[in-house]
């Protein structure tokens, strides 16, 4: 068992929390404390319960916290009920919508887009982050990339590069000044999306080439939505629509399954039964790994005995390592 230390999610949570605080205090973004509490409670609760039902080895609150903060930063709802539903959808999608042992959608993206399409009471404010946050975001984004040792940075890089290239091509074609390109690229919401959403290693292809391709396709679709169909929220909608490409690209290109550095606080069972993540640590990034693929739903039904051993770990007594 590895010791915690540098799970990139720790850093991600810290950066997202700072962003949320800056957005609320500095930019006057309507982040309501009640919503934050509700989203956190529902996300963690869903993660815990679904984790137990699915027979996961441990309760890992980090991803649920990342999702909580992503939802808090990006999603606006007119009541706490929709915020709670968003958290439920986000974490629920991780456990229910699985293909080849991976969850299909980025949880926060799935919840935001599903709610936006289904309800008038949920929206995102893409303009509200302005471009003042540019420096801070670029730095934090870079920092995060460094921290993950750029192992999975290809998606972000490919997305931003493709989006920038398309914007530049459009500006040249229309004879517009490049100020318009910079204006779009410095949009805070776009950068948050690029560094903290599409970068999610769990929902992007396993092979580096696949991630490059995936990032580029999402960028192309986002551009088309925004500048050819003239609809808002291009990047979020594009990521949502492109989610099924990930298993397809995995099928075609293979690649090593990503695994967070194990650093969970709570263990469900005494034995290490890493099940949601098929370990690849120590392997080169392009080494193909034999992976046991099982549909999430099946696992959910098949592993009721995961429940029995839960208590000791939860009571605070860490199991033997």
């Amino acid at each position: 068992m590895q010791t915690p230390a540098l799970d990139p999610r720790h850093f991600q949570i810290a950066v997202l929390a700072i962003l949320a605080a800056f957005g609320a205090a500095g930019l006057g973004i309507d982040i309501r404390p009640l919503h934050l509490v509700v989203v956190a409670a529902v996300a963690l609760g869903t993660q815990y319960l679904a984790g137990r039902l699915a027979g996961l080895a441990r309760f890992d609150p980090l991803s649920a916290l990342v999702t909580t903060l992503s939802l808090t930063i990006l999603l606006r709802t007119d009541g706490p009920g929709l915020a709670a539903l968003a958290a439920l959808l986000a974490i629920g999608s991780k456990f229910l919508l699985r293909v080849r042992g991976k969850h299909l959608f980025n949880p926060a993206n799935f919840a935001i887009v599903t709610l936006m399409l289904a309800s008038d009471g949920a929206w995102i404010s893409t303009g509200q982050w302005g471009s003042a946050a540019l420096g801070a975001l670029a730095l934090s984004g870079l920092g995060w990339l460094v921290l993950t040792r750029a192992r999975r940075a290809e998606t972000t890089v490919a997305f931003l590069a493709t989006f920038a290239a398309l914007l530049t091509a459009r500006a040249l074609l229309l004879g517009d000044p490049l100020a318009i390109v910079f204006h779009h690229l410095s949009n805070g919401a776009l950068l948050i999306f690029a560094f903290f959403m599409i970068s999610d290693p769990k929902t992007t292809p396993d092979a580096a080439a696949g991630r490059l391709l995936f990032g580029a396709i999402v960028a192309g679709l986002a551009f088309a939505i925004q500048f050819l169909a003239y609809r808002p929220y291009g990047p979020l909608l594009a990521l949502y629509a492109c989610a099924p490409l990930t298993p397809l690209l995995d099928c075609l290109l293979g690649g090593a399954r990503y695994r967070w550095v194990a650093s969970s606080l709570f263990k469900f069972t005494r034995q290490e039964k890493s099940d949601a993540t098929h370990a690849t640590r120590g392997l080169g990034r392009n080494d193909a790994v034999p992976v046991r693929h099982r549909a999430g739903l099946l696992r959910l039904l098949r592993r009721p005995r995961g429940h029995r051993a839960v208590q000791p770990g939860l009571a605070g007594r860490a199991g033997p390592r």
Binding site: D78, T126, G127, Q128, W129, H183, N187
Partner: peptide, 14 residues
């Protein structure tokens, strides 16, 4: 019909 209007490409500040 449904609610407040704001700009998507600039900040809308109260």
């Amino acid at each position: 019909r449904s609610g407040r209007v704001e700009t998507t490409n600039y900040r809308t500040v109260r």
